[in-house]
Design a protein around this nucleic acid. Structure first.
Lengths: 150, 150
DNA sequence: CATCACTAGATGTCGTGTCATGTATTGGTC
DNA sequence: GACCAATACATGACACGACATCTAGTGATG
């Protein structure tokens, strides 16, 4: 197997394992990794419209996340109200329960981050970040991240 | 956003974009990235049992890929016959059509690999590969890759 | 030979993830 | 003010991806 072929599968493997770990850690909270990303984004930037949220999500990039939000609304974690001056839009914000859960999610993410941190030196991590940035630059998922870096 | 938090999302973003690109390139062939992985594995290592295949797959690691194989069988790309001496097992191999398709898949993957190659120097790629290896080491998706490196 | 834990695979369920299409609302153009 | 392209969101369809459970076949133990 060539180094790049291995790299292709390593990216897949790393994403899968990260998601599996995060999913297990989130399970007691009754939410999934994708739902967690929405909660954390709303925590920092609410209120957001559906498409505004969609631009910032790395999971579900390119599509509108209406079904993802659906479940959060029916779980009572997110409020979805029609837009004031544009009735096509919806305005999303966290319910009190959602806000509480978002705080717990942040703690769980920190555990994952410590694990990531310990997988390499700061120099190595910087190299990996730089490499992956050039990889996703200019594509939907990359743009979502670029918006969030600011 | 801390570097590790960005890294976490970059891994997700890179996987998503890679999968999207590969999916678009494979669409004319009528198969998906996950199906392509099966075809390429069988091309190199047929015959395989279902669990043998499962151990080598990075996508669908940990679970048995019976439904993934189902679709390949009904598309006429894979043969699935009961095991000779153990009737619990099934023996998977490529049909002639499947073999032809696997060759085309290899060409499409090469395009992706060239794109990956051009995203960084050989040194950088080696660093990224090393980092991701330690990340997935010891977990199902990592073990699948380790088996395939030999 | 009967029993029974174990294994290989199939299947149910739920939540994405992606592409395509449908529908209501808006704002510009005549 | 009627028309119409564009926008925001919803929804249909299909294939995963992960977990749990089920079923049939196997082999070790007595």
């Amino acid at each position: 197997m060539t180094p790049v072929e291995e790299l292709r599968y390593l990216i897949l493997a790393a994403q899968r394992e990260g998601n599996r770990r995060l999913g297990q850690a989130l399970r007691p909270l009754g939410i999934t990794p994708a739902q967690a990303e929405v909660l954390r984004l709303l925590e920092d930037r609410q209120p957001l419209t559906l498409s505004g949220l969609g631009e910032l999500l790395v999971c579900e990039s390119g599509t509108n996340p209406s079904r993802l939000v659906d479940r959060l609304v029916s779980s009572g974690l997110v409020d979805r109200v029609p837009g004031e001056q544009d009735r096509r839009q919806v305005e999303l914000s966290l319910t009190p329960t959602g806000k509480r859960l978002a705080r717990k999610v942040a703690g769980i993410e920190d555990e994952l981050h410590r694990m990531l941190q310990s997988a390499g030196s700061a120099r190595e991590i910087a190299t990996v970040v730089g490499f992956l940035r050039t990889l996703v630059d200019g594509q939907p998922a990359g743009e979502a991240l670029a918006l969030r870096r600011d």
